[in-house]
Design a binder for these strands. Structure first.
Lengths: 80, 80
DNA sequence: CAAGTCGTATCTGAATTTAAGATAACTGGA
DNA sequence: TCCAGTTATCTTAAATTCAGATACGACTTG
């Protein structure tokens, strides 16, 4: 039984990451390669087993083609 | 000899956190209390000994009174 | 149905990071 | 100098993270 990060905001964050990756047509493996990481890294991120660092988040936004500032704005408007 | 996070962006991020905390007139101890953490937690954050989580960053922005989205925008405009 | 492929999830043990709490070090004022 | 407030650093246990392997599930094709 693995521990995951459970606040609503964190759930919302990782839901968005998954959504954006899928919208971009990348697989976990492809995204991982662009990040210089392993597929299991992305899997852990997306399953809430690993915290998302601010700088990593910006990198993810660049790769996945979304605006990190807008995403943060939406996130910070959410409860919690 | 302690390991620190060294990318320019990360340096810039933590420089901003320090600046905002000081501008807000809070001590590390006061900020830590509001975060529900110890003073050494804030010290480690501000000295680059600990990564800054996205959600934590939003919390910090709320406490320190800056706009997290604007901060992310500035950060993502920087090199690296 | 069997076998292969593709994508994602999960496991393992080791390495790294983080934490609490204590304490040291620095700073400015009386 | 002494003290009080603030920040930095240390220690060691606990928690997280990692690479890599492997399992799983959905699809496809013969």
């Amino acid at each position: 039984m693995v521990k995951t990060l459970g606040t609503p905001r964190h759930q919302s964050l990782i839901a968005m990451l998954v959504e954006k990756r899928e919208a971009s047509g990348l697989t976990q493996t492809q995204l991982a390669t662009r990040l210089g990481e392993y597929q299991s890294f992305v899997a852990r991120l997306e399953s809430g087993q690993r915290r998302v660092d601010v700088i990593e988040f910006i990198d993810l936004a660049n790769i996945l083609g979304f605006d990190p500032a807008a995403a943060i704005k939406r996130l910070s408007a959410e409860p919690n």
